[in-house]
Design a protein around this nucleic acid. Sequence first.
RNA 1: GCGGGGAUGGCAGAGCGGUCAAAUGCGAUGGACUCAAAAUCCAUUCUCUUAGUGGGUACGGGGGUUCAAAUCCCUCUCCCCGCACCA
Length: 998
Amino acid sequence: MVQEANTTNSANNQDTNQNQESKTFLDFKAIQNKWQATWKENKTFQVELTKEDLSKPKYYLTTPYPYMSGLLHLGHLFTYMAPEMVSRYKRMTGHNVLFKYAFHCTGTPIVAAAGRVKEGEPTQIATLKKMGIKEDQIPKFADPYYWCEYFPEQTLKDLTEIGFTLDPRYSFKTTHLNPPYDKFITWQMNKLKELGYIKKGKHPVMWCPKDNVPVGDHDRSEGEGETPQEFVLFKHKLENTSENPVFVITATLRPDTVLGITNLYIHPELEYVKAQVNDGIWILSEHSLKALETQGHEVKILETIKGIDLIGKKVQEFDQSLVPILPATFIDPNFGTGIVHSVPSDSADDLIALQDLQKNQKTIQKYNLNEEEIKAIKPIAVLDTPELGSIAAQTLLDKYKVQSQKEAEKLKKIKNELYKISHHTATFNEKYKDVFSEDLVGKKVDYGKDIIKQDLIAKGFATQFYQATGKVVCRCLTECIIKVVSDQWFMEYNDKDWKKITHECLDNIQLYPEKVRKQFDYVLDWLHHWACTREFGLGTKLPWDHTWVVESLSDSTIQMAYATISKYLQHPEMFGINESSIDLLDDKFFNYIFSEEKSQTTAQEISNKTSIPEKLIQKMHDEFNYWYPFDFRNSAKDLLQNHMAFCLFNHTALFPKKHWPQSYVLNGRIMINNEKMSKSKGNFFTIRELNQKHGADIIRITAANAGEGVDDANFDMTFLETAKHKLNEIYEFAKLNYNKDSHRSDKRGIDAWFDNAINTCIQNATTNMDNMLFKSVVQASLMDMQRHLKWYLRRTGGSFNKEIINKYVTSQLKLLTPFTPHFCEEVWATLGNETLISNESWPNAGSIDSSADASEELIKTALEGMRKVLKLAKIEEPKKYQLFVANSWKYEAIKTIKAKLSETRNVGEIIPHVLSNKDFKPYAKEISKMIPGFVKNPAKIPETITSQDQEFDALNAAAKFLQSEFACEVEVIKADSSQSQHAKAGAASPGRPGIVVE
RNA sequence: GCGGGGAUGGCAGAGCGGUCAAAUGCGAUGGACUCAAAAUCCAUUCUCUUAGUGGGUACGGGGGUUCAAAUCCCUCUCCCCGCACCA
């Protein structure tokens, strides 16, 4: 039916013909092409603000731009559908809407992917081919800049072809290849530095020594999740080396127990090195020495020595005490420095090793140790714990009955337990009085740990050291090391005041769904500092140090501000700006645009410098202030802990409170038929593929129906078919029934009910739209509407009220416009409308007539009852039904009972209350009988109690319908009328007629 | 380990104190329409019982609050997600 798409106005003339053809599907592709062309021609979604527009309400939507390392896929579509739908909805509720879209080209993945093309890596090439790139074009992708040309263009095309309401002039890409954006990022970085939020520092990273790059979690062939762990190295001065001191180095995670050291352990068989490290002479494992080198220390090996050579010697501790170096074979040469210090009071491993040695005379003799001295070593209590006393390790060894070092499992358990205690309950004892820069006696270990560490480092006893939590191997198969990057620039997200105002920002933001707030709160506290510069990759150069490039998450935090004026800067020629003016933009320009007040003199100054007309500069300022803050930003939940949080931080730093973000919408990931989307499973679809196969509207509504909230959504492939059928149905129905003079004009009960149903759907669709629950909107506007129509059809037998059918058709089309805009335009035009439905108003829900609902409820109950009775009576073909409407006194009596039930559930109270009404006296017995049932199950009372007359009328009006349902006579009788002889008449109650079948 | 979110019928997924044996979609079964299929429509889809619209058991397990719990509280078990220098 391609012609359907092109000949909209002749559609009504050929009803019979159309009816014949109704088995064919609409040509969704033709429809979408047609309407996309119309929108383009009419500039329907072009954003142009006149002076008057500035007084209208606005709605500004943004979504994180996609990374341009390929075509967009279903996952992108699912996320981006949210702002797209809301944008259409807000247009229909009278807002000026800006929905901007941009393309992310900063950072390393594009460079890396281009590198893989250059090397001819098959997977990468296959991926490009799958995206429809011809063989002979592939070599072009060896150049990263070509990616930045090709994919933004293609992405914009894909989004336009799926019907997005974009004004492409606002689109831009995020890289130094885009000069005005580059200027903007320069402004941002300068500003943040000025405010003291960017600082220089050191930073440990997993590093590939071959490629000379940091190796992120996802770029590893082994060791995902392993991170640099911070150790503290203790420098124990070897006795009698005061002239030219030599230090024995141990590594620890627990600097807090420094005062409890009783001895050192060294492996007698292992080789160690004596080396010049910075200014001192250190003894440690060669492995750890190499690590120190990569972490910025100057090292030089002097000689190798065996562990055994040090056994029995003494070292000086932080508190000046001398402790011996003892032999131990449990030492792992690859862990720490291969030498450990022993704190038997708070380490069960240390304690049991000590006790084993004390018992082992053979070893003591073998190493020529002083037995008396060894046996005299006792744990030194340093920490107090409420549950385990002062020597926690001993308490636990006793508790678990550990006999020797060999009981590894028990010891591991104890270790964990001790670690927990040190975190939560342990406090420092009086040994810590006046030792450190703060008096720590009685303070929590967790609190004092850092203070101690800093003091030990300051006094030269300790130094920092990093070791990976596990082995990490780069994709190039080289084992990674930890490198401490110096001169790194950081965003100081750990700044206390900054955190505080950002929390304030979070407190005032609308979150959809609200339940992500706790996670956000946690994330804001958890973020510390973020390395915001890179040595390589695409991006804006750090303004004050061109050896660095701004890292890609840091250059996208406030780009929504730039976006409000992007059309002027991206397309200067359209607005009478010389292209050369763009090169002259500077911080002053952005300061002016983003300031609240506009000053004549500054605008003039900028105009003089850049030759951009002063009026235009002021207009940009006004438009930014009009659009900002953004009202909506959404992303999949995985961006919560970085991008979405950074965005809050940067806004509080750079913008006044009134320009802080208004709302965040988070969504889950999309699954396909309940499976994760993945290339290897073959269920990986680009938007382009899906569009070609199913058409934009079908994909859009299926994506909208996939799920809502932050849980993973499910793209149900079978719904594609369901949607096609349903839309077709709507089209056929509208064509045949809209605005037909053959429909009746009188208003009946069933019409009032249908009106209610339509109003309820509109109401539900609207509230759910406002709450970003798009699946529920589809539910209301598609499923519920269709279901109610079916019932209306069945009840009326096709005798429609013209007005109500018109309301139905137009309301549903409007409700569906955010999801299936092309389809809705097509049907809208087919109905003879000359306007675009995209420009129409969102329908208003009228008021609900609850008595019409009650009557319809009665009919449904009757129908259900009649069917059940028929089955019970085992009658195949009924001849006649009698429906008894309850005795009139019951309506009033039950109303009274219902009212009283809201006050009390006490039967003994309710009965006298009801019977105090004289009118009910004659029915005292029946009333007393029914009340306990209602108390037990109040649901038995209908929501709305009408009257005998109304029920009688409603049933009579529906008699024809009921007759046709059962193909037999149906008689409606009042229970208290003279015709009513049957026993069932008394069983009737309000909302529930008595039924007799013959 | 830390933090967050979950557990509902054959499946997906609503409900978040009483109208809940639980919306809606999918599936299944029977029927209507059709030469036939698809689509559509009607009925059934925990269990027992019935000329009467009733009972029983159920929303991960256990305990509690309440006249009343899928819904509130406690606890246990299990599942998912995040823990970064990267998009």
